[in-house]
Design a protein around this nucleic acid. Structure first.
Lengths: 265, 265
DNA sequence: CCCTTCCGTTTACGACGTAAACGGAAGGGC
DNA sequence: GCCCTTCCGTTTACGTCGTAAACGGAAGGG
């Protein structure tokens, strides 16, 4: 009766579960600090959701009044920007496992795969923060979520350029890659959120009501079990490989034409 | 100095501009009504953004106190759900043009292309509403944004089933298609929003500051012009065609294997 | 010892979502 | 005509929000 299928491991999820340690010690000795505030905000959102995060509650989770936060953070909006930055930044500082060390890599495909898994690990570790990463207006118009830092985009473009991509192809790859990551990961975390919120309100006769509703939708009724299965990891892998194949095709036929339109989308 | 390139027409955008008629007549004769309220909310969000929408302001845009709205809408959250439903519903009732009549179509590819353009037209018509469509928790866990209604999902699955897709393939196609639409369209409207918000705050020396920042990012600096170009329409078309090709491949080799994993992602 | 600097608290204000009581207009039965 | 019910927008009120401004006490150097 559960929706998740445990037939295969999911390395990104494993990394998540491994990383959840030492969450909260109540009423700290009040060594307030911008980084401590941002981390507390991340923990709070993970635990209670974005809507529940208020300055007063965040303050009291740190054993402090709301106004104390304003010494270190200009306001709530900037706090959220800081949360996004800090979460995205965890891409870099966790080469401890076997994944996601962006610094050195074996070829551009390896780089893109590591980067994708790194972002997916972040999304799964902070499903309630990810919509923020996805929808907050970027610093520059061409910094596209979820690759939300100049450093990251620079690294992306540099890697592809070194590998022989033309500037046009590298930029097109950047857009296609962003679009793929954003779509897949946002759907995945939305699904997690939906499951959680459904558990919150059992509604009693949900079972009966569901079957009644589906009577008029024969295709839905027939495929309901399939629709409920979670194959996110496999789908992620396959979509990613498909994208890499497209990029490879573009790269190998790059010498012939330097037309400016439609290299890839 | 502008960011948009006007070298090609964009039918979805044209449809948008054609459809923007007769927005607001101030201080209506107060024939209040749920549909009128929802439409006023949509207009308000389009004009002033989601964050600016409050019950009091929405009421006064209808010439009425905030509490009057509560006769027709249970609360703000339900209002937003209603906005999403109403916007998505415009998919069906606009067969007047040459696009997007989901009812009858010439083959499943034609259906998917029309549906994609229909959703894109909606996203471009209401860029400030689309993030709501993308991120609001769905009614059922397997209703994935942006295809946010049982009717729509039923139509999708039915069309592919009739065309010979197995249930597994149809469901996998549904997920891949949702992911593609969500990623591409959300990026496109986010970019629109970013451009608008940048115009709001010229910041004086933005030009100088930008060039200073980019000094440490040679790849960004070199490709800056390319990054600023808007090729959304062409990229949308190419990604969509690539997805259709993948689906076609799956469909044509469906008879050989009925394995359950990884038909497509 | 005092004076400055730092930093968390207290107080206060306007705006928000919304519950509850209110009032007046419309309309049908007598 | 009159009254009573039903409808529907308004008024009032409460608790919470983000945050500006004033406050107070601890730390530390002259």
């Amino acid at each position: 009766m559960t929706t998740t299928s445990d037939d295969g491991r999911d390395p990104d999820l494993v990394a998540v579960q491994k990383g959840s340690a030492a969450a909260s010690e109540l009423t700290r000795p009040s060594g307030l600090d911008r980084e401590r505030i941002l981390q507390a905000a991340i923990d709070f959102i993970d635990e209670s959701g974005l809507a529940a995060l208020t300055m007063r509650r965040l303050g009291s989770s740190l054993g402090v009044e709301a106004m104390a936060l304003y010494r270190y953070v200009p306001g709530r909006e900037d706090l959220l920007d800081g949360v996004v930055d800090r979460v995205v930044e965890t891409l870099w500082d966790d080469e401890d496992g076997d994944d996601v060390y962006i610094g050195d890599h074996a070829g551009w495909q390896d780089y893109l795969v590591r980067l994708a898994h790194g972002m997916r690990r972040i999304a799964l570790a902070h499903p309630a923060v990810f919509p923020l990463i996805a929808s907050r207006p970027p610093a520059a118009p061409w910094v596209r979520p979820p690759l939300r830092s100049l450093r990251l985009v620079e690294s992306f473009l540099g890697t592809l350029s070194e590998a022989g991509f033309s500037d046009q192809a590298a930029v097109a790859a950047y857009r296609a890659y962003s679009s793929f990551l954003l779509g897949h990961l946002l759907l995945e975390v939305t699904q997690i959120g939906a499951q959680v919120s459904l558990l919150d309100q059992p509604e009693g006769d949900a079972q009966a009501q569901r079957e009644t509703d589906l009577a008029e939708y024969p295709n839905l009724a027939r495929t309901e079990q399939l629709l409920g299965q979670d194959k996110s990891a496999a789908e992620f892998e396959e979509s990613l490989e498909n994208l890499l194949d497209r990029l490879e095709r573009v790269l190998h036929q790059a010498k012939n034409n330097d037309g400016e339109v439609g290299d890839l989308a």
